[in-house]
Every structure is written in structure tokens, then in C-alpha cells.
């Protein structure tokens, strides 16, 4: 494969011009982007888009702090009322959110860690090891990214029925471990972050490929693994259709199943539903506030698939 012959620190030559070379690691000042200073108008427009992007979240909290009577009046409330904690408490109980949080953290965490590990392994093989059929296999990986998992739910549902796994977390966990994006993401990262000399040095010292994986690849891949883990965690946390089909709100729900239960159940109290939506979103918002920069960087790095 051509990429294995490419000297390190240089982006792999690609047929599509422009796209993949965005992964070059030049310092920002030398980048093509950001060549002009932003004028005030830029800030105004950006502020408007930011408002549009944050307002629904803000209003979720506003609605959660009110009650049904207030929400059935015009104009709608624009600022917080006094009921936030009461509503949150009831939503927590009615929605079975406590259990949902534990379940979702378990599923999303396990899934994220497993995928990180498997993707780095496979990504390393595709980036730096030579083996017959690697090009064809890589094409398969890329091809599977294009097939949405929703199309496979019926046979999976039959499997779950046969194994008697409904309302059990492994029914949600196992299918979530299929992740072609991760393999591709780690491959792209390792092509440029892992110098061939390091692997050769390891070989000269008599290290097996497995040892090279543990002692050279994993330490170098760590930043990308962390980003992949966060992206996968968010994705699994928010997964809807499949958990909705195999889990029930009062069995062992994930957060999304619990929210759907609140929304589709006969909860007449809209503020309660909003409180549930708020609670279900808060952990991820917190992750975004803390690791926002890394997540943005990860999406920008992994996004450019070409």
C-alpha cells in the first residue's frame, strides 16, 4: 500500500485534491484559514446563530422550571420560574431516570472503551502494517460507514427474541460495537502521528507486533483515542431507535428510552417532560463544556473523509 511507504509527518497522497491534506499539522498561523480578521458584522451573525443553537436548550430549562398552567398561556415564559427542582425530582422518579443513567453510562462507557481499543488495533494494521488484501478490506470498512444500522434492526430483533434478551443491556451493547468510523479515524491519525522509524526501531529490538501495539502505538494514539471515546460515548448515549425497540421504560431503559417514555406516556405535565429532557441532556452538555475543544478538534480531524 502506498501509504505505508510514505515518509512520516506527511499526509498521505490522495486522489481527491484538497480534502485529506487538511490533516496536515502546520501551525495555525501558516494555515490557509483565518487569513482575515473578523469584522463586527461577522460577530453579529455568529451571535445570532449561537442564539439559535443555544436557545432551545435554555428554554428547556425555563419550561422545566414552570408548570402546566403557565405553559398554557401566551406569551410563553422567557425566564425561570420556581419549580425546577420539584419537577426534576418528579421526572427523575416517574421517568425511571436513575436506572436509565446507570444503564446508559454502562453501555456508552463500555462501548466507547471497547471501540477505542479495537479501532486502534485495526487502524494501526491498516495504517502501518503490510498484508495481502488490506486495500480491499479497507474499502469494505469505508463502505460499511455508508450503510445505516437502522436497516438491520429486524433480524437483530429476531436474534434478541430468540436469545430472550429483551430488556437486557447486552442487546443494546453488542450491536453498538460495530464502528467503522473508529477504524478509519484511527488509521488516518496513525498514518501521520506514528513515524515508521519507531516501528522499525521496535522491530530491531526484537519486539513482536503485539508488543509494538502496546508500547509504541497505544501511547502515541492516546489523544486520538480520547477523542474517539468521547465521540462514541455521545453517539451511544443518544442512540434512539434500537434501544427503543428492545428496552422498555420500566424494564431497564437507557436515557433515550426513558425520555421517549415520558414524552409518549400520558404525562399531562409538560414541565415534567422538559425537566426529563433537561436531565437527560445535562451530562453530555457538561462533557461538551469541559472537553468542547477536544471534541471540536476530533470532529474536524475525523470529518474529512473524502
Amino acid at each position: 500500500m502506498t501509504t505505508t511507504l510514505t515518509p512520516p509527518q506527511q499526509p498521505a497522497p490522495e486522489k481527491t485534491p484538497g480534502v485529506k491534506s487538511s490533516r496536515s499539522r502546520r501551525p495555525r498561523s501558516a494555515r490557509a484559514g483565518g487569513q482575515f480578521h473578523a469584522g463586527p458584522l461577522t460577530y453579529v451573525i455568529l451571535a445570532l446563530f449561537t442564539l439559535g443553537s443555544l436557545f432551545p436548550l435554555f428554554w428547556t430549562a425555563v419550561a422545566a422550571s414552570r408548570d402546566n398552567t403557565r405553559l398554557a398561556q401566551s406569551p410563553p415564559p422567557f425566564w425561570f420560574g420556581a419549580n425546577l427542582f420539584d419537577k426534576a425530582e418528579v421526572a427523575w422518579k416517574d421517568g425511571n431516570l436513575g436506572e436509565a443513567f446507570i444503564n446508559t453510562t454502562f453501555v456508552a462507557g463500555t462501548s466507547a472503551l471497547t471501540i477505542c481499543f479495537l479501532s486502534t488495533m485495526a487502524g494501526f494494521a491498516f495504517a502501518k502494517l503490510r498484508f495481502k488484501g488490506s486495500n480491499a478490506l479497507l474499502l469494505v470498512v469505508i463502505g460499511t460507514m455508508m450503510v445505516p444500522p437502522q436497516l438491520s434492526v429486524i433480524p437483530l430483533y429476531m436474534m434478541v427474541a430468540k436469545l430472550d434478551w429483551s430488556d437486557q443491556l447486552q442487546a443494546v451493547l453488542l450491536p453498538s460495537l460495530v464502528n467503522a468510523f473508529g477504524v478509519f479515524f484511527m488509521r488516518q491519525y496513525l498514518i501521520q502521528a506514528l513515524p515508521d522509524e519507531l516501528i522499525e526501531a521496535g522491530r530491531v529490538d526484537g519486539a513482536s507486533t503485539w508488543r509494538i501495539l502496546w508500547h509504541i502505538v497505544f501511547p502515541i494514539a492516546r489523544p486520538a483515542m480520547a477523542v474517539l471515546a468521547m465521540l462514541k460515548f455521545v453517539e451511544t448515549w443518544n442512540d434512539f431507535l434500537w434501544p427503543f425497540l428492545v428496552l422498555t421504560q420500566h424494564g431497564s431503559p437507557t436515557v433515550q428510552v426513558a425520555l421517549a417514555g415520558l414524552g409518549r406516556g400520558y404525562t399531562p405535565d409538560q414541565a415534567l417532560i422538559m425537566a426529563g429532557a433537561l436531565l437527560g441532556t445535562l451530562p453530555l452538555l457538561l462533557v461538551f463544556v469541559i472537553f468542547g475543544k477536544q471534541i471540536v478538534g476530533g470532529i474536524m480531524q475525523g470529518a474529512v473523509k473524502g
Partner: peptide, 18 residues
């Protein structure tokens, strides 16, 4: 950048309910 991405952190379920 992060505030543009905040909706991405919101699930389909939570977003739709709002």
C-alpha cells in the same frame, strides 16, 4: 465552535420534546 456544536450533544428525543 463549541456553542455551534451544542445541539449535536442533544439527543433526538430531548430535542424533539422541546
Amino acid at each position: 465552535r463549541v456553542s455551534m456544536l451544542a445541539p449535536y450533544a442533544t439527543s433526538v428525543a430531548a430535542a424533539t420534546l422541546v
